[in-house]
Design a protein around this nucleic acid. Structure first.
Lengths: 367, 367
DNA sequence: TTGTAAGCGTTATCAA
DNA sequence: TTGATAACGCTTACAA
């Protein structure tokens, strides 16, 4: 054969003369293009393109020849050229809030896992962005869209103040929120049933005879946290338990925050605490132990999320399972569905929650 | 002005007739292109392009007019078109090993933070890939390169068996390893001084009078873990301490693994343990406490990495600071340097380590 | 200092 | 069933 030699890396030893210069020189490190395939097979680039997309009107014979050539020359289409021609990138951006040690927080790291898996399954690339001050103020989110660098945007853990997302959504650009939502907004989201979770947790403590139930909320600025809080309040109301601000602490979603919040609450002698997440529960447990109190004998502790740590700590934490991975996975799938123009059911979705009984509340297992 | 109306989103109400079809129709949702700017200003697209890149040979006057038009029409260049013309993407891929709950591991989450920051500072986009079985066996890493989807590749936490990276590196494609390295490979890397860390930790325990020093290694398949182990062995050798396989546990980089490894080691009554990282140290501490032993009175525990948890646990963990964030940040910078053809010093870099004395070894502070 | 036009590597239209 | 060729939106060599 008089065809060019091909090496393992997919580059071929071309000897094309490059642009009309004074000196002709060898084009080094150039990539195999659709033109090379066309020449090799002896057809036009149009035919190659059609054959590659398995268009029915190309004979099996030429299609086979094309695929053979692709293999021989180790051809791969240029992403940029394809993106330009098709006006899409098969890439989505995952936007994350700007938080110190962001990925040390299970919520975000599990979300990332879920989004990644959904992308992989659908042939999308995943690009990461952090919603820094710059990102918001300089309207970088709009630039991503205007520069056509991505096909859609997934926001994990947005706060109530992220209203700028509406502007983006209103342009028709695909946006989906994961694990959060915006008030008065038409941006679709996927989220767990936080309110229900708060109810289940609080109700569990009530059922065990607890009447002085405290709550540690992550932040009043995060919708999902507020919903958990509202579930808690609902049970208090229904069961005619007194609500006291002394029983409410703000734990900033961290163990340290949970620890500090619990310390203050302990002055008012609660007999139970529903921590807004497992991490704050871990901190609260530390504070209770430090105060010389026994769990669950003196105080019951219930968490939420069911992170790996819930099993590991002592006592093992009773908590409400909140499947962060699944939420993110579904959100990413929803986004991709939007991008590809599929009508996929309701615009927003809820993922259900479930009580996981362990040792920190004093309930008998299997009950 | 008789120019087109522009809305906030950067789209303009065009009324261009699109391609010669039977019916002319309005092009909806089309983006502002460089042609629009050229028409608006009354110059050629070449001039606009040059003006935008602040080429000196364009008069300030026209340049100003161009920038004015850009603002008016809310123009943003098409990423795809630019990538195609310039044959680069300003995107790098971060490759991560396939590990369950990957980002719950501080090593990876801190690395991600470092890489992201370096990208942001240099105007690069960050794309995430997981080195799954498919990724390796199907040679997806080669495809990323061949499809010209990225300009370079950063691998965090490669293992000794990731030899396929050599193949990629040998093509001349920019590859850098962060926090790891390959034996007999010319791939540049940035890493902390693990061997030194192992030495410092073990030496610290020796200085405190400990003579039966155990070690928990993450895995014998990870270069950095092996190096930490070798630092440990070096001190044993130098101080004529007996080396016993009973004093070596494999902790799989997890708290649970550290717990199990320590439990077995305890049978042989060590008076100190150097855990290969803080997470395993946390597990080891749990095992020691469960055995009814006091830290540091009965057993000294020294970790490595200095993660946030080191401060938090009881007793506060003496450890070797290993700046994962910085390593990843530097590695990303090195990669970008390679991409942009800069000769930036030595091909590999070491980040120094440092002993952080807290309470778990029994040393006096400030000593 | 600016304009013309080629080139980047695809896809897609329309004619053959 | 296939081929020419325009189009995607930018950069750049070269001419004016």
């Amino acid at each position: 054969m008089n065809h060019r030699k091909v090496n393992v890396t997919g580059q071929i030893g071309k000897s094309d003369v490059v642009r009309a210069g004074t000196f002709a020189f060898e084009k080094e490190n150039s990539f195999v293009t659709i033109k090379d395939i066309a020449d090799y097979v002896g057809v036009s680039t149009a035919t190659v393109s059609l054959a590659l997309s398995r268009n029915a009107r190309i004979t099996k014979e030429t299609r086979d020849k094309v695929f053979e050539a692709v293999k021989m020359l180790n051809y791969r289409p240029s992403t940029a050229a394809r993106n330009l021609a098709l006006n899409r990138t098969k890439t989505i951006s995952l936007i994350l809030p700007e938080i110190k040690h962001l990925f040390l927080q299970p919520f975000f790291s599990l979300s990332l896992n879920g989004v990644y898996d959904a992308c992989l399954e659908n042939g999308y690339r995943l690009q990461i962005e952090v919603a820094s001050y710059q990102f918001v103020k300089r309207k970088r989110y709009l630039r991503l869209f205007q520069e056509r660098a991505i096909d859609g945007l997934l926001y994990v853990g947005s706060t109530l103040s992220d209203l700028y997302l509406n502007e983006l959504n209103d342009t028709g650009f695909p946006v989906v929120l994961s694990g959060s939502y915006l008030k008065n907004s038409r941006i679709p989201y996927v989220i767990g049933d936080n309110r229900k979770g708060g109810e289940i947790a609080t109700m569990h403590l009530f059922t065990l005879g607890r009447r002085k139930i405290a709550h540690i909320i992550g932040s009043f600025n995060i919708p999902s946290a507020v919903d958990r809080f509202e579930g808690y309040r609902k049970v208090l109301r229904e069961k005619n338990l007194a609500y006291s601000s002394h029983f409410i602490g703000i734990g900033k979603f961290t163990a340290e925050g949970g620890f500090q919040a619990m310390k203050k609450i302990l002055d008012y002698e609660p007999d139970a605490v529903f921590a807004g997440n497992d991490i704050m529960a871990e901190g609260a447990i530390q504070a209770i132990k430090d105060a010389g109190l026994k769990i669950p004998d003196d105080i019951s502790v219930c968490g939420m999320d069911d992170l790996p740590l819930a099993k590991r700590i002592t006592p093992a934490l009773t908590t409400v399972k909140y499947d962060i991975y699944k939420i993110a996975y579904r959100a990413a799938r929803k986004l991709i569905g939007k991008i590809e123009g599929k009508r996929n059911g309701r615009s927003s979705e809820f993922v259900s929650v479930k009580l996981i009984i362990r040792e920190s509340c004093g309930a008998k297992r299997g009950k």
